[in-house]
């Protein structure tokens, strides 16, 4: 595969950095009680979201999950509108009516995070059907976790998309745990991508903390889909540094495992690759990081200063 140009590579670095910073801020403010409800952080999982979305076109679509902040940023979501939404402010992506689990930006092809595990599969099938129907060459990437991979909806979606050769890229982010239940107890296979065989579609397991590996696999899957050959199932092995949700005491896993995975963290690894291959200098990357810090700081400021929704908005937008 042809090496992507410098801009793509540096954008991926920036995106992963932004996700890391964004999630770190959300963690902090949730801890301070400034964010209501539930949040599920993607710290440690920056590469799967970033590598996937970098391999898509702006007009392509994604369906996301409860752990969706990274997907949204990677697909071009505005951190200001995201942070405001997570703070429950009227300036947020969903006017404060969705929160962390329901961020969407249809103009960017982000068809929504989802609070129901496995529910994005059928939606991605529908979005991909619209591409096939309109013959517009578009694809839809469907993010789902290892837990979701055991839902009937995902089996239905994989079958549906393969039977109709729909342009779906099933991106499984296998972080090893469905809440507290390890995959060793929830399935009899080691690699979720093995299930591709059951649907007669290509499948691959990649290092989900290697953004280039994800980018390459998804690029190939996107090409396959655009050629009318149907879906691909890509499994990205990764790990979440935090619990399933903020506040999860993580009694089900040990520190040793966490430390091993943190040693494989995606941003430092990618930085090393970029420096070794002389794609960028230390100063360039530092500049990008600084820019990301400024953007996230501006997002926090925007969210904090924004007003809460007025009560008269309660009944708006129930129907079109």
């Amino acid at each position: 595969m042809q090496q992507p140009d410098k801009k793509v590579l540096l954008d991926m670095y920036s995106t992963m950095t932004k996700i890391r910073l964004f999630e770190t801020e959300v963690q902090k403010f949730f801890g301070e009680g400034l964010i209501p409800g539930f949040v599920h952080l993607a710290l440690g999982e920056e590469a799967s979201a970033t590598g996937t979305c970098a391999a898509l076109k702006p007009s392509d679509m994604i369906t996301s999950t409860h752990r969706g902040h990274g997907h949204c940023i990677a697909k071009g979501g505005d951190p200001k509108l995201m942070m405001a939404e997570i703070f429950g402010k009227s300036t947020g992506y969903c006017k404060g009516k969705g929160g962390s689990m329901h961020i969407a930006d249809f103009n960017l092809g982000i068809l929504g995070a989802n609070g129901i595990v496995g529910a994005g599969g059928p939606l991605a099938v529908g979005a991909a059907f619209s591409c096939q129907y309109k013959e517009n060459g578009g694809v839809c990437a469907c993010f789902f976790g290892d837990g979701a991979s055991n839902q009937g909806t995902m089996q239905e979606s994989l079958n549906f998309a393969s039977a109709w050769k729909l342009p779906v890229i099933f991106v499984n982010e296998n972080n090893g745990y469905g809440i507290s239940c390890p995959t060793s107890k929830s399935m009899a296979i080691t690699n979720i991508s093995d299930r591709s065989a059951a649907y007669g579609i290509p499948g691959a397991t990649v290092d989900g903390n290697d953004v280039m590996a994800v980018y390459e696999a998804v690029s190939e899957a996107a090409k396959h889909a655009r050629e009318g050959k149907g879906p691909t199932l890509i499994e990205c092995k990764t790990y979440r540094w935090r619990g399933h949700f903020e506040g999860d005491p993580c009694v089900y896993r040990d520190d040793k495992e966490l430390k091993e995975w943190m040693a494989k963290e995606p941003i430092g690894r990618f930085k090393k690759t970029l420096l070794e291959n002389k794609v960028a200098t230390e100063a360039e990357l530092e500049g990008l990081k600084k820019k990301a810090e400024e953007e996230i700081a501006a997002a926090v400021k925007f969210a904090k200063e924004s007003p809460v929704p007025k009560v008269d908005a309660l009944l708006e937008d129930v129907y079109a």
Partner: peptide, 11 residues
């Protein structure tokens, strides 16, 4: 789900 996704995407 296909109907919902397709409707959301303009059909």
């Amino acid at each position: 789900g296909l109907a919902v996704g397709a409707a959301a995407a303009g059909l």
